[in-house]
Amino acid sequence: MYKNMFIILLLAGFGLLLGSFLLTHHEYLSLPQLPAYYADNTAPEVGAANVVTAVVVTYRGFDTLGEVTILFVAASLIAMFLKHSKAPRHDRHPRPSSVILSTSQKLLFPLIVLFGAYVFANGHLTPGGGFQGGAIIATGFLLLLMANPQAEFKHGLLNAIESISGTSYVIIGILGAILGLGFLDNRFISLGQLGTLFSAGAIPVIYSLIGLKVGAELSNILHHLNEVQNEE
């Protein structure tokens, strides 16, 4: 009884909140102060055609470094807890995957990885960026693991990609502080022409490193989870 009352009260409060949002909502005819600053100054200051990327990588670059660190800590903890135990290994004989899945995996896997690389390399021009591209690459590896559960990745290679790209990201940030105007400043490489692939200074480099790092981390998590399925 009390539980139902509580749920009804919670729903009513939520409805009141959303209703008040709806009633007081009005369209802005011009941009408020902060978005207007970004919209006006991104192209001359940062040289990126995609304003979202400019905000994520340069204006709020320190927050992105924090997000990458959080993901790194999560991946390391998962690797620590899912370490190979010495328990007797129980050989799994999964049902062979269907012809449709294994054939389409062979066709789609290179395309998905290529698309992920495209998304993170063009982060300063088109929607998307390092996190999106890395997640797309990880879904490619997921497809590989679903079609062939016994597949073995090289953990050493994935770990090397992850640590080298993470370290290079911080080194580029420090280079920005030494050669440019501040930590993670992108202007120590020439900005180039707005809208071309080699423009926006260090943004494409940083986003490619983030993409490789996120892709390697997520693939590593998936592979760890797939590996412990074999144990008792």
Binding site: P127, G128, G129, Q132, A135, A138, T139, L142, L222, L225
Partner: peptide
């Protein structure tokens, strides 16, 4: 579109499979 990409890849792809694992 960038949030949509993340949601499609992580929310519906990876999370579902991690739940199954």
């Amino acid at each position: 579109p960038d949030v949509a990409m993340t949601e499609a890849a992580i929310g519906s792809g990876l999370t579902t499979i991690i739940f199954f694992y």
